[in-house]
């Protein structure tokens, strides 16, 4: 009995060795005939009017079957000026740099359609599509039909979307300067000097100031016109400024669209809608680079997130970017 078991084990071992040493031959997969296409969306974060939605559209056909003729993108809502389909196909070189190879004419846009006609004798390309979100798309869904045609008459298409366009607005790199363009309007997403502020006091929601106050850390601060005088030392207010904006200090919210940094953080419509401004103060002291503040205007019409991109102690100025939502 014992011998039988030992023999079975031996034979099993031999069989296993033979089987495990078998070679599996690899062969390049056979591509099925016809024109093929694929598409990916490059963009991250909320789609905001004035910003781009980026796509990469790839198309290919076997060389013996033909070559690429045209690539077209049709948007459900016509893109704003600046929408284009790149006429270069890119590859990444050894240094990690994207290098474009021109494969066709510059794109032409007619209504909702943007087209590139291939001029290079190529059977494969990946074109980038940049859709600049128009005002008409605000709050709506937008979708895209990518299509390609080949010299043999074949056509393919690829549907992308729908993508929701947000209600919010976005403005980058406004500069507020102490004693000069220090009056900030959330309603206009703009900065004004004292003269302009005095002529439009109802539109001024915030004031920027920089102070060096002994014994405390004051530095770069943003206050409402109604804030207590101790939080705006030495500031002579233009007459008529009366808005009491509510402010909430924030840190670690480096919104990617505002900061243009490596962080994957996005402030969206829903964040602004859900923010609770009860008991929020009307001043914020000591703003630092990469800090932020949530704002609600006095009339409750606008809510915004302001990101501090840069501060300059010598010039007494800040560079900030803003996302603003009309809530009422």
């Amino acid at each position: 009995m014992k011998n039988i078991i030992i023999n079975i084990a031996k034979y099993t071992l031999i069989v296993l060795m033979i089987v495990s040493c078998g070679e599996w031959e690899y062969s390049v997969p056979e591509v099925s005939p016809g024109l093929k296409n694929d598409c990916i969306n490059h963009s991250l974060g909320p789609n905001v009017v004035g910003q781009y939605i980026e796509f990469a559209y790839a198309m290919a056909i076997k060389p013996e079957e033909g070559k690429l003729a045209t690539a077209t993108v049709e948007a459900s809502i016509a893109g704003a000026e600046g929408t284009y389909l790149d006429h270069k196909s890119y590859y990444t070189n050894g240094s990690g740099v994207n290098v474009g190879v021109e494969v066709g004419n510059s794109s032409t846009t007619s209504g909702n359609k943007t087209t590139v006609t291939f001029t290079a004798d190529t059977c494969a390309a990946t074109l980038r599509y940049y859709y600049k979100i128009p005002e008409e798309a605000r709050g709506k869904d937008v979708s895209f039909t990518f299509s390609a045609s080949a010299s043999n008459g074949e056509k393919v298409q690829y549907e992308m979307g729908p993508y929701k366009v947000r209600e919010m607005d976005l403005k980058l790199d406004l500069i507020a300067k102490d004693g000069s363009t220090c009056y900030i309007s959330v309603a206009d997403m703009a900065v004004y000097d004292a003269t302009a502020a005095a002529s439009n006091p109802e539109r001024i929601d915030l004031i920027y100031l920089h102070r060096s106050v002994p014994g405390v850390t004051f530095n770069h601060s943003i206050v409402s016109p109604t804030s207590d005088a101790q939080y705006r030392p030495g500031l002579e207010l233009s007459s008529g400024l009366h808005n009491k904006s509510k402010l909430i200090k924030a840190w670690n919210i480096q919104d990617r669209q505002l900061a243009r940094m490596q962080y994957g953080v996005f402030v969206d419509d829903v964040d602004l809608k859900n923010m609770n401004f009860n008991d929020a103060p009307d001043y914020i002291i000591n703003m630092r680079p990469e800090s932020g503040l949530w704002v609600e205007t006095e009339n409750g019409k606008y809510r915004a997130y302001i990101f501090i991109n840069k501060v300059d102690n010598a010039k007494k100025e800040i560079t900030f970017s803003i996302k603003r939502l009309q809530v009422n």
Binding site: V213, G215, V216, T217, F218, S221, Y231, I248, K249, D279, A280, P281, Y283, I284, I285, N286
Partner: peptide, 9 residues
């Protein structure tokens, strides 16, 4: 606490 701290929150 720092000058300007929002004591309510």
């Amino acid at each position: 606490v720092f000058f300007g701290t929002d004591l309510k929150n």
